[in-house]
Design a protein around this nucleic acid. Sequence first.
DNA 1: CTTGACCTTCAAGGGACTCGAAGGTCTATG
DNA 2: CATAGACCTTCGAGTCCCTTGAAGGTCAAG
Lengths: 132, 132
Amino acid sequence: MRIGQAASRAQLEPSAIRFYESAGVLPAPARTDAGYRHYDETGVELMRFVRRLRALELPLDDIREIVRLWTSGEAPCQPVRDAITRESEAVDQRIAELTRLRAELRSLQQRMDLIVDQWPQSCVCHVIEETP
Amino acid sequence: MRIGQAASRAQLEPSAIRFYESAGVLPAPARTDAGYRHYDETGVELMRFVRRLRALELPLDDIREIVRLWTSGEAPCQPVRDAITRESEAVDQRIAELTRLRAELRSLQQRMDLIVDQWPQSCVCHVIEETP
DNA sequence: CTTGACCTTCAAGGGACTCGAAGGTCTATG
DNA sequence: CATAGACCTTCGAGTCCCTTGAAGGTCAAG
């Protein structure tokens, strides 16, 4: 099948597939006489595998290595576990950051609403200037 | 003062200041005879203002507009409130996404640990292949 | 006079793609 | 058989927010 159908079956964009190929994540497929990429079931399976790993927001560098082992017949279990561990920690950190940020934004909103209620004409921006 | 001192007083990198200037966020400062950028207190204050808005992870496009009003004497209160509202919603959404992702990652980790405990030699990657 | 710290500009890189342009191919229909 | 329209190709540039590096100029202290 050609890239469009492979893409829709793997739930990826054709542009993403071409990008993964150019980035060395997916192997270069066979070509038809006209130069069209030609994929088989295995190719689509590999795309799905990549999509699932990307859905976990693993970096492409990790996925490339995992796919390399996978396609060379070696089980990439340990790299997968390691990548998931790293990603898990990164996600925890980012959630903590965003939680702090959300509190900060909420507090700013409340203070600005308060000021607008009390002195409708006054400027509200100085609340930004308080924090160091 | 020159860019280095301004940067350390505003808690920004010199490269960031140059970038903000090139991006039209900070105004171009005066120059010494040798071509060095020369900043005064107002310049540093503006840098601090920008840093605080960036610490809220507001996009530079919003900050550029806010700074434009600010430096033209107009109070940018409403744009600031709007930008903070947008950012607040974006942060809420991202936290929700990451929370789902964290649950997914935790679940994968647990299932993989379980498999490794029970069948130490078996491949663990097929847990990735279950999800659609 | 030299050393070292600071400054200048410009170009490139990172991450993970998407989009557009210019052009080739395939298929169904009139 | 011609042609419309859907699909494919490559390549380059754009997104976002800076950082890093190269090549070179300036300044103060020793």
